[in-house]
Nucleic acid binder design. Structure first.
Lengths: 167, 167
DNA sequence: TTAATCTTTCAATATATTTTGAAAGTTCAG
DNA sequence: CTGAACTTTCAAAATATATTGAAAGATTAA
């Protein structure tokens, strides 16, 4: 396989993979392109390489910056803005976990807490409902804690010694 | 808050939550409804409670069965099929992890392995590309292993003692 | 075997999401 | 200032995804 071919396949597949996880295909493709671009690139580079419009690049780049995965870079003596992605894949994963936790897990736990406050707790059906909500909430808070620790542990996450502890 | 209100809010929110994770809103809602329905229910019950068509219920139920989260139940002396969801939330989580791993992580690792086979490995750009692919693949395989262990460990996943080992 | 009951399928339709591109906004060199 | 270079916005268009419902298929009681 040739490099150009492999690059293209990586970008396409990363996009397809992203959609399965609720991530906009183009956003994932831009991220992939930036991951395999050693030097910073411009909006025009991205437009050209992915055959997408200026507006599309602009919006998705903004989102990626919001996710903390991409940075604006100003090159001395250049008028245009350049962009570059965090290349340390462990930091990338940590950042994604951190953001999804904040945007999705935390609000879900908050909601579940509200749903536990139901009138007439002695009622059998109410009790069963509250138990289900409680167990989902417990799972959520436990996951929340584990993820917090993972975020702090950074690159040491998945090393052998940690892995053994699960067994 | 009243039980009926809380139930409805749970179902709606679970649907919204699902879409963020690449899961069809209706499928997530049906799952939520089944989670809070102690006894098995029929297609007609689901149609009525969620105000959706027969075909929609049928397809999404089939998917949920494919995910191993819902089961068909035949009640003695009844013509209709009933459905029920796994209620142990830890088993639910395990099952979802298992399926997503199989459907998404495993194929991604396979793809990355293919992308590592590039001609002219001495070329500087090729080397940088291969390094990036390699590090993503490594992250994937490590995650794969951890998830395998988690799946086996079942309910003991997140207990305090395991958590400490991360620190 | 029949026909009533229940389930599945899938083309058409509806809905939701993404993308475009031109206009408006911003920045800055001269 | 001015206007060229660049960035951002957002309504309209395109695309992708989900839903409907009627017809076909399957099952079973009588």
């Amino acid at each position: 396989m040739k490099l150009s071919e492999a690059r293209q396949q990586f970008i396409n597949s990363w996009g397809a993979f992203g959609t399965q996880w609720g991530i906009n295909r183009t956003m994932a493709q831009i991220h992939a392109l930036l991951l395999v671009s050693i030097d910073p690139i411009t909006q025009d580079d991205i437009m050209e390489q992915l055959s997408i419009s200026r507006g599309n690049v602009n919006m998705n780049i903004r989102d990626l910056i919001g996710w903390g995965l991409v940075e604006r870079v100003i090159l001395a003596g250049e008028r245009k803005e350049y962009f570059t992605a965090e290349k340390d894949i462990w930091k990338v994963a940590t950042q994604i976990i951190k953001e999804r936790k904040k945007r999705e897990l935390d609000p879900m736990i908050k909601l579940l807490s509200q749903l536990e406050n139901i009138e007439d707790k002695k009622d059998k059906e109410t009790k069963q409902f509250t138990e289900m909500i409680g167990s989902i909430k417990k799972m959520g808070t436990q996951a929340d804690r584990v993820l917090d620790v993972m975020i702090k542990a950074e690159e040491n996450w998945f090393t052998g010694s940690v892995l053994k502890m699960f067994k």
